[in-house]
Design a protein around this nucleic acid. Structure first.
Lengths: 342, 342
DNA sequence: CTGAAAGCGCTTACAG
DNA sequence: CTGAAAGCGCTTACAG
């Protein structure tokens, strides 16, 4: 019973009635299906525009048994929930959000720390999205593998481990750790600390790069210079104080993140040490603030926004049934003033 | 044609068949509708658990004409897209995400800078969510009003303006600006700069608090000490340099954000000025890094995570047809070492 | 307390 | 090139 006039066009049926065609034709026309005559298509599309009608995506997605949603899960280190307030993650989230928007997907954010991923297997995050992006692997490698084996479409930001069963996108962490350390060695540092817990693949790889550089310079790694402090700042502070109290010699430190490097510099300065004159500091990530600390932080840049795009394209590839390879993004040393090279 | 045994239970119908009841009863039972006998309810719920079945939320939401999604729109200052990488926003996003999860809502993130909100009126952000949280008002007050008048359920993080037609949750910006400035006055500063663009209601209110404190101490505000630099760090740097070049006297500065304060301190130090001895600096927000700069930053704390909860409860109230009042959260001065009070 | 039926707004084989 | 019909997985008045 088509009603013409000022009535609100709020469904395909309304539009079809208005145009004097069937709902099926209207559907095909709006989807620009070439099986429909160009004339009919144009007509329906114009009519839709005129009446401010657009296809109800919820209904369409429901019908097509898809969600047009990608979940993003932050694998926070459960002990240090601060983790996610690292600006690094916001930049990454921004990159992912933008890339997703370009592909007309929505971003569902799972933020709460997840002690065991398998707990969320039946949650909305998994069931109500077409794919999942995990940020970080932390210590849940087996659980991630299990999910992947169950057929979950997923890609992980991190560093590839030998037996992984999922697609990984990540930075060249070995290279990053290597470049940072080599830089310190080149400017004459020899007592180089490594600050950050290496109980996840990314940080372990950075540490590997650190060791590689040391060995090239024939410097024996000193285990007392390795501080297994988690990603959290308060602890970093304590760890540094402990270390200096114990009279170890230290003339430089490689940090696992800029946030940790910033906390380290601040603690050192507070203790009366000068950066870089007494101790050089290198960070990791190149967050925006790194260029505005004093001294400005020398750091390893990861191209986060680009990483966001790759992550998105990788899940989308998976959804389209493509064979998606791992991606390793290069890392670049950004030399500023915290090491003394300038 | 119920098939018992190991067949996957993937719809209400499957479950109903298994239990020998109708789909309607199964639906009511799983929703714990008291009209169904307790016995039947328990039975169905147990069966669902046993077979790992849970109601398909997409179908349910579709049927109920709701989305269980709240959109979060960051009103970035279009000129300085850096804006959102301010850690403040990540903390806020985290607070919102957590509160939403508690209420079983999803968070849809609209991140791309939006030149004109009305452009997104017909977008997924608006159409495909039950309500919207806007972070910041920036210069789009009229557009926000228009949306609200069109019946969009929305709440805005910001500062209430006289003719606004939407619910506002925000900090006590006048009080915050006042406390920061008063603190500087108390420790003897008189040439107090104000750094940050005041072209949005929040910052304008902070500036108002600044003026209020000055007037209490009979200090005439000096317009050359007000730097209308946007929320972006590179520009802050230039502005400060310009200012110092022009030989104005300056012994303290109130900044619109911690990020700006950090950039300010770094620039001052680079120019050979000491903080706080030569110039005191106060920030705003109390981001995590504020406690780890050198010197540690004195700042105005906004309880961001709590703000996130209030924002969520406010939209949800709107959805439930409640009368939702504005909320103003108190601001607290956190005294550290960047002013010289200690 | 329970069930048969209608319907949310779409898409797509199938038939013409 | 177009349409009638079925159906995605639910919920809820209505009737019993």
């Amino acid at each position: 019973m088509p009603k013409s006039g000022r009535n609100k066009v709020s469904s395909l049926q309304d539009l079809a009635d208005l145009a004097g065609v069937s709902r099926a034709t209207a559907s095909r026309a709006l989807n620009d299906n070439p099986i429909i005559s160009a004339r009919t298509r144009k007509k329906l599309q114009a009519l839709a525009r005129k009446h401010g009608y657009s296809i109800n995506r919820q209904a369409r997605d429901f019908r097509l048994r898809r969600t047009s949603v990608i979940s993003v899960v932050f694998m926070l280190d459960v002990e240090s929930q601060q983790h996610m307030s690292d600006p690094f993650f916001l930049d990454m989230l921004g990159g992912i959000a933008d890339a997703l928007a370009d592909h007309d997907y929505d971003l569902l954010l799972a933020h709460a720390p997840i002690a065991n991923i398998l707990d969320v297997k039946e949650s909305r995050v998994m069931r109500q999205s077409d794919g999942v992006i995990f940020i970080g692997q932390e210590q849940q490698l087996e659980q991630l593998n299990q999910l992947a084996e169950d057929g979950q479409l997923m890609v992980v930001w991190g560093y590839p481990v030998p037996d992984k069963k999922y697609v990984v996108v990540g930075g060249d962490n070995v290279g990053g750790g290597y470049k940072a350390t080599k830089h310190l060695l080149e400017i004459g540092r020899r007592k180089i600390g490594f600050f950050g817990a290496t109980n996840n693949p990314e940080n372990a790889a950075r540490h590997e790069g650190y060791l590689k550089a040391l060995s090239e310079y024939n410097v024996d790694p000193d285990p007392t210079l390795k501080v297994d402090v988690p990603f959290e700042m308060l602890r970093a502070r304590e760890a540094i104080i402990d270390m200096l109290d114990s009279q170890v010699e230290l003339d430089a430190v490689v940090c696992i993140s800029d946030v940790m490097a910033l906390a380290t510099m601040s603690t050192l300065q507070e203790l009366g040490l000068r950066v870089p004159q007494d101790i050089s500091v290198v960070g990791y990530d190149d967050i925006t603030l790194a260029a505005y600390s004093s001294p400005q932080l020398t750091t390893v840049r990861q191209n986060i926004r680009h990483a966001g795009r790759i992550l998105v394209e990788s899940v989308l590839g998976l959804i389209n049934g493509e064979n998606v390879p791992d991606t390793m993004l290069s890392s670049e040393l950004i030399i500023r003033n915290s090491c003394g090279a300038k």
